Computed example of a mutant assay.
Amino acid sequence: MDLFALPPLALLLDLTTQGLLALTDALTPLAGGLAAALAVVAVTLVVRLILIPVGISQARAEQTRARLAPRLRVLQERWRKNPERLQRETMQLYRDENTSPAAGCLPLLAQAPIVGILYAVFLHPTVGGHANTLLTHDLLGVPLGRSLIGALTSGTMDAMTLAVFAGIVVVIAGVAELTRRLLRPATDPSGPAWMTGMVGVLQFTTAVVALFVPLAAALYLTVTTVWTLGQRLLLRRRYPLPA
């Protein structure tokens, strides 16, 4: 079932699509054929600005996890043979510090409706009973509604489609590698050992996702990835992790 078929969500989807089209029309005299792609980039930047408080909350939570990590390791060593006691002591530590293992998660979930509606615009070929004309606009000749995998399976692959998506994947993967090198994640030692390695791998999953989604969504992912790295670097200075 498509949730965006429900009247309230369908209306929100239609309004968001019309807003992006209006912005495209406004940018057309200045940007010409690049207007729709620039509209996607501009809206993405606005969304990231709105979500700055979420980033701050996550940075604080990451700092707290890193600060508590040595004490969590002590608890794990002391109570490793008593999982129930370990759980109680761990939760008590979080309560004493006026925080929780889920700190930073709720603000992250709060952004889901905003991000979700944008992705819905990029993924729905029809909106409000009519064609989503935003996706018929293009970037360097590649329709915003085309995905790399879709082009491969439908036989519409061409050199420009390959080049545009290759550029997007290179940027996203490059930012992921910089993130891995420059931003050491704060891990919870009470969690499973494989989690640390999984965090590093997940950095690169966005590049894979970009191959399957329409170009408009891939642009959103690219801008978001670059913004997130810059924001996290700035916030790491404000909320540094313990050495």
Rank of each mutant, 00 (worst) to 15 (best):
L215C: 07
V201E: 13
V175G: 08
A36D: 03
G19L: 05
G128N: 00
L72R: 11
E84R: 13
A166G: 15
T222F: 00
R181T: 04
D138V: 12
F4P: 12
A210L: 04
A243L: 08
L123A: 14
A110C: 13
N98V: 10
I114E: 05
R180Y: 12
A151P: 03
R184M: 10
Q58G: 11
V121P: 07
L211Q: 09
W79E: 14
A218T: 01
A22F: 04
L182Q: 12
A159N: 07
L9C: 10
L30N: 06
V47Q: 15
C105Q: 09
I50A: 12
L68H: 02
S154L: 04
E77W: 02
Y119T: 15
L72A: 04
R181W: 09
A31G: 03
F4I: 06
L229A: 01
L123Y: 08
A31K: 03
M198P: 04
G155P: 11
T225D: 05
S190H: 06
E77L: 14
E97M: 13
T205R: 02
L68W: 01
L3H: 07
G104P: 00
M91I: 00
L229P: 11
N98L: 12
G167F: 12
R95Q: 06
L135N: 01
P113E: 04
A37C: 04
G33H: 06
A42H: 09
P83L: 12
R71K: 11
W227M: 09
A61W: 12
M160G: 15
A36K: 02
L49D: 06
V41G: 02
G197Y: 00
L108Y: 11
A120L: 08
V46K: 00
A173Q: 04
P113I: 02
T44A: 11
V142S: 06
T153K: 14
L229D: 05
T28M: 03
Q87V: 04
G32C: 00
E177H: 13
H137W: 03
M195F: 14
T179I: 05
D25F: 00
R67M: 07
F122S: 05
P29T: 02
I168G: 03
A110P: 06
